[in-house]
Design a protein around this nucleic acid. Sequence first.
RNA 1: GCCGACUUAGCUCAACUGGUAGAGCAAUGCCCUCGUAACGCAUAGGUUAGUAGUUCAAGUCUACUAGUCGGCACCA
Length: 586
Amino acid sequence: MINIKENEKLSIMNHSCAHLLAQAIKHLYPEAKFWVGPVIEEGFYYDVDLGDKVITEEDLPAIEKEMKKISKDGKRIVREEITKKEALERFKDDPYKIDLISRMDEKDTVISMYTQGDFTDLCRGPHVDTVKELKHFKLLKVSGAYWKNDAKNKMLQRIYGICFDNEEDLEKHLQELADAKLRDHRKLGKELEIFMTSDLVGKGLPMYLPNGYIVWQELENYIKEKERKQGYKHVLTPPLGNVELYKTSGHWDHYKDSMFPAMKVEDEEFVLRPMNCPHHMMIYANGIHSYRDLPIRIGEIARDCRFEASGALKGIERVRTFCQNDAHLFVTPEQIGDEFKRVVDLILDCYKDLGITDYEFELSLRDKEDTEKYYPDDEMWDKAENVIRKVLDDIGIPYKEMIGEAAFYGPKLDVQLKPAVGNKITVSTCQLDFCLPMRFDLTYVDRDGSKKTPVVLHRAVFGSIDRFIAYYLEETKGVLPVWLAPIQAIIMPVSSEHQADYAKEVNDLLAKEDIRVELDARNEKLGYRLRESQIKKIPITIILGDQEKENKTISYRLFGTKETTTLSQEEFLKYIKDLIKKRTRM
RNA sequence: GCCGACUUAGCUCAACUGGUAGAGCAAUGCCCUCGUAACGCAUAGGUUAGUAGUUCAAGUCUACUAGUCGGCACCA
C-alpha cells in the first residue's frame, strides 16, 4: 500500500488537500476553528474544533462536494511571509493558531501563510500552485483526537482523507482498503472458526475453537522445538502472583493501572500477572549459578492478563489475556553481544521458515529528558544501547531508532511485521535489562569466586501466540500452509455410493500418518462439496472417482488452483509430508 | 478510557417519512448418485443486543446499559 509521506509530490498534494478540506469546512461551518492538518502515511487529516457541532461520516459527501466546488474555481495558492509579531496580531482571534505561533522559535523571524481565495492558513508549506490540481481525493473517516495528542486535553474532531494525482490511483487505493477488510483476522477468524468471544465471558477474552487451537498447538510445538535447539529450557509458572513480587520488580509502580485489580486472600494480595519476568527471575534465584552455567535460557508459553483500555481491544491482536512466547536469557556482561545476536538469528530463522519477508527493525531507546519513566542510570543505558547498535551493525540489518520507546528497564529491539495490506504489527522483540537482576539480587559466581550480577535479555519471537495468529491469518489471507491448516486435506468420492469404500481406504491411510484429513462423502454434487472446501480454504482437496479406485491412485488439487494432479498413494504421502515438513506457503 | 457510528434468524443482509419482521446461504427432511465453486422441493428457525420511556401503535423515536466497528490516548 502506498506511503504518501515517502512520495514528495503526493505529500505536497495531500498537504494542500488538507487546506482545501479546512476551507470547505469553514464554508459549511463558519464557527470552525482549526488546529493542524499534516500529511500522514495514509494521506492527510485536519483537526478541527466545531464547538458543539458533530461531524459524522454522513456529512463527508457534502464536505467533499464543497471541496470539489472550490477546486473548480481554481484559485491560486499564494505564499506570504510575516513576522511573528504580525502573525500574533493577525490570528489574535484564533486561540489554536496563537498557540502554534507562540511556540515558534523567536529566531524564526519569518512566519509563512498560504492563502487560497477566502481562506488563509498558517503553514510552512510547500503547496501546489492552485487548488485546481486537487481533483482526485476522498474523505475517508472522522474521529475524535485529543488536542496535542494528550488525553488530558479536550477532544477535537479529526477528518481523514487522501489525495492522488489521477483517478485510477485513487480507485486502486480505495480497492486496496476494501481488500484489507476482507483479510482482517477478525473476519477470517469467524469464517474459519478460529476463535470466538462471548459477552458473558467478557470482552478481550478470546476463546479458541477446535480449528484455532490446532493452529495454536502447531505454532507452540514449532517454536519450542526451535528454542530447545538453541539451548532453552521450558518451564511452567502460575498466571498470578503476589503484589510484592511486582513491587520488587518495579512493575507495580509503572503498570499497576493496567494490572487486573489486586485481590486480597488471607492477608496476601494477588494480581493476575501482566508479564512473566518476575516469575522467571525467581526461577533463576532458585539455585546458585556459576559463570560456567551461563547463558541460562528459560522459556515459557505463558499466560498473561493485562487490563487493556476497552478502546484498545482488537480481535486476538490486542486482548486482555494472551500467551506470550516468552523467554529470559541470563548472561554475563561479556556474553550480551553474542546472545543478542543469537536471538536476532533465531527470529530471522523463524521468519525464513514461515515465509515472512516484509518487516522492519526498530531500536527503541530512552528519552533522556524523561527522568520519570526510565530507570535512572545513564551509564547503564548508554552501555546497553550501544551493545544493541553494535549487534545490529555487525549483522548488517537496517533499523530505525525510536527515541522514547524503550521499556522503563532497558532499550529494546522490536520487529514490525508488515502484512501485504493493513497495519504494521509488532511481534518479535528482544530487550536488554540491567535492572531486574539487580532488583532481585540475582548473582552468579565468577571465575575469581566473586558474586556478579547477570544481565537479562527478554525476548519473544511470536510476541504472543494470539497476536501471531492474527498476523499470519492476515498475511496468508486465511489460506494457511498445510502444517498449520486445521484440515490439511479433504477427501471427496465423486459418487458417495461408488467410491465410498476407496475414499475410506485413503482416509484411513492418511489418518494413520497423523495427517488431519476429513472425508466428505455427503450425498451432494462434487461441485457443491468442492465449493465448500474452497470457502473453508482447505489446502488440499482429494477427488476419488472410478479411475482412482481402479488404479489405486490419488487425484488432488491445491487451494486456489484448478489443475488436478494424480499420484500413486506412496507418492502422494511423500508429497504431503514434504509440504508439511517444509512449511510451504500455499 | 475519550469522540463518533453501529447491533435484525447460525452467517450475510432487507423492511418508505413509526402501522406489528423478510430473503439468500447454512440446518433438517425428501429427491438426485452426480468428475472439479452452489440440482430441485419442503420444513423449521427471531421477545429486532438488554432495560426503561414516548405513542393508539416502536426494528424504526428518546434515555441508560452491554458489545462491536473507525479513530484518539495507551501498548511492559
